[in-house]
Design a binder for these strands. Sequence first.
RNA 1: UGGGGGAUGGUCUAGGGGUAAGACGACGGGUUCUGGCCCCGUUAACCAAGGUUCGAAUCCUUGUCCCCCAGCCA
Length: 566
Amino acid sequence: MEEAEAVRSNFIREIIDSDLEKGTYGDKVATRFPPEPNGYLHIGHAKSICLNFGIARDYSGTCNLRFDDTNPSKESIEYVEAIKKDVQWMGFSWGERQFFASDYFEQLYQYAIQLIKMGKAYVCSLGPDEIREYRGTLTEPGKESPFRNRSVEENLDLFTRMRAGEFPDGEHVLRAKIDMAAANVIMRDPTLYRIKHVAHHRTGDAWPIYPMYDFTHCLSDAIEEITHSLCTLEFENNRELYDWVLDTLGLSPRPYQYEFARLNLTYTVLSKRRLIQLVEEGLVNGWDDPRMPTLSGLRRRGYTPEAIRTFCDKIGIAKSDNMVDYAMLDFCLREDLNDRAPRVMGVVKPLKMVITNYPEGGEEEFEFPYHPEDEAMGSRKVPFSRELYIEQDDFREDPPRKYFRLSPGREVRLRYAYYVTCEDVIKDPATGEVIEVHCTYDPKTKGGWSEDGRKVKGTLHWVSAKHAVQAEVRLYDKLFTQENPMDVPEGQDFKDVINAESLEVVPGYVEPSLASVEPGYHCQFERLGYYCADPDSTPGKPVFNRITTLRDTWARKERSQQGKKA
RNA sequence: UGGGGGAUGGUCUAGGGGUAAGACGACGGGUUCUGGCCCCGUUAACCAAGGUUCGAAUCCUUGUCCCCCAGCCA
């Protein structure tokens, strides 16, 4: 089993190749994955993780895990732990290279003092609203703050006292002295430090002031001797400030920032704000709800790290806005699990079948391979008896054209077992619904094949009723009804296009071997799809999540036939 | 009406003066004890208009459309 094809190149790898050739950093390549611990990682982060750790792996470089924890009012240790778990699960390791921006608070503070001494930063005592007013607009230049020309001494005094906790929140900020008329609004004397009397999850009450992202990130990169700092497109405007801080401080050699397009996936939302809304408003069952695009949700659903990594390789890295088809992810999952997942029998929407000429009370066992194309995966015994469950979809009283499953008078194969012929149907007298099918079997077809060469077109999966294990089966579907959940009429939002049928819980029956599988167990229910045992499973009462169905050309054909009739 | 980016089949991504390539999807066929997998085939693209050139997706010019930026968020 090979791990995908060779990683395709992209503009970032070209830049690295060129730096290596020029010897910009010698032969060193150092990246970092810098999440803010204020939420759970999602598949968009996986793209960044694969990019950064993948580059480190391929260039024999390093990739640091760095928590960008400069805003204690939003961050917590809970998120730090969840993020570490998710990165590990993705299959990447940072070894000893785990850092926190908060590790650098003292150094950052010293750099700020250096800027003040250089006359490149000042304490501004304007309020938030005034700062906004003074900033100007996109088309008009800003005005200089009246505090812009405080002396170095006064700035030093004030900043030191900010640090000492002498002022309440909002009283002052430290700003870079750049250019209030800059075309790039970010360069109009950006805030470097704000006062926040909030305990930090790591530094506690040690700091009443906290550095801003733009000041922290570039310097953290420099401190860690990062060579290539990769982030998403919305930070392109911030690059000028990134460069300004490092160059003003005269740091060399220094990291450079490169931006790539973030991932968008059809039928999903990938912004922290919106994911939080789904969780907090109870529209899903938590961060790890199997419908969530969070890594914890995907993991619980049953998506494998291998599939997600392959997916990230396949979608590539570029700079144009994109909307990747969710089908691509499912393809990667099926590709992975097709090789590795044991084939087992599970009936999700049961219909009882009675084999009328099979001895009452009789039973026998068959030895089924776990994977017909991979003998090494072994086998297990599966019981057979007079009463079975088959899939409702596998019987039609009035079969459409080209339907070759069971219908009155029709002979089909019960997988690995016998040929059976439908002789009778039992209906609910009240509803007319078929509740039982009566069949006869041909004892000479034991094992599921016939010596006389007689062919049957349909093969059905089944579970012996008396031996069946009842399982809760959670059938998941897309969380939203439209490709782009953001594309809604005025006055509506993404929550108005949530798919009411994104979760259907059904009582199913599975073969006895599945009675006590471990949570996280992946398998293929033959002919149905890939399933994963949920942590809610208990011994004897498994819970299975449907990850995705098998490719179903019959369903598609039938759908298009109906479309033609309509 | 400021600045920063971006535009290649339905989708994602290559190609950076010389036959527009791959993957997903869709469609058709072969095979099959999973209507799965696998195999084969079909479909379908360079934002527009000018220009340079023997030759332009690529270089130049002018447009068009889309995204990002006015947090003491990241």
